[in-house]
Amino acid sequence: MSGQQSIAPLYGLILAGGSSSRMQRDKASLEYQGQTQLDRAYGLACRHVLPVYVSVRAAQVAEPTRAAKPMIVDSFPGEGPIIGIRSAFSAHPHAAWLVLACDLPFLSDAVVQHLLRERDASKHATAYTSTFDGLPEPLCAIWEPSAAAALQGYQNGAGTCPRKFLIRHASKLIEPIDAHALDNINTPEEYSRAAAELRQTTPMQLKVQYYALMREQAGRSEETLETQAGNPADLYAELVARYGFTLSREQLKVAVNSEFCDWSRQLAAGDAVVFIPPVAGG
């Protein structure tokens, strides 16, 4: 970062030691777009820091998703993120840690990059504040070596909550740059919503106008809608399913932004699409 000798090298730590009790299945192995949460988080961290380790409990060392990566096994009694972070400091005392929970499906490279840029190595930690309550987010944060002793003292005083630790100890807090990047998922419902959202990688807003028979069948003359359809042909198929249009695509022409176009034209956000039923002027 600034190149000063005193700044500790930054390693990555993916927290995957949770018991996933509310999810009722191992969160690390939940998949988005064919990739497990753990693989996604691990890959993301590797794009910014090296090496990256996975924090696990002793009972998890044989679990295949985790075992395929370098692991740091909890080396203190107890459970929870603080044990994982302390175990990492214990394994590599001179390193600072980019700590990421594995259950943040919306976390992006930009959010990690911004965190790295904002790092203040003179504090125990650099962390985002929560969009919900403004409190520190300890599980997408940089933890400096100086935090190790303080964490030990905090645990000796029966503290278990990394968020409370950051509130009480010197840490640099930064504003979120993406309101949903740190949304974590804990229940099957949250998982299915997140998975659906990630499937729609680039939903766009289009304006669609309806005329004549199609206006009557749609029950409206225009609407703005979110779609993944990349071209008018796909969009029409989607709208046939919604409104039951009786005209086949072969009977129609299509216009985008008030000009005739091909059915294969690539649609862009904000385009205005009009399907043109058989005309009958004169």
């Binding site: 004549a212 028979l213 009786t246 005209l247 022409k253 039923p277 005309v279 009958a280 002027g281 004169g282």
Partner: peptide, 27 residues
């Protein structure tokens, strides 16, 4: 004009019903 310009006409019939020309009879 009759075959290219996006204009549509709906006929209303003595029988009380109606239909969009070229969209319904010729479907």
């Amino acid at each position: 004009v009759k075959h290219r310009v996006p204009i549509w006409k709906k006929e209303h019939y003595l029988s009380g019903d109606s239909g969009w020309v070229n969209c319904e009879h010729c479907a």
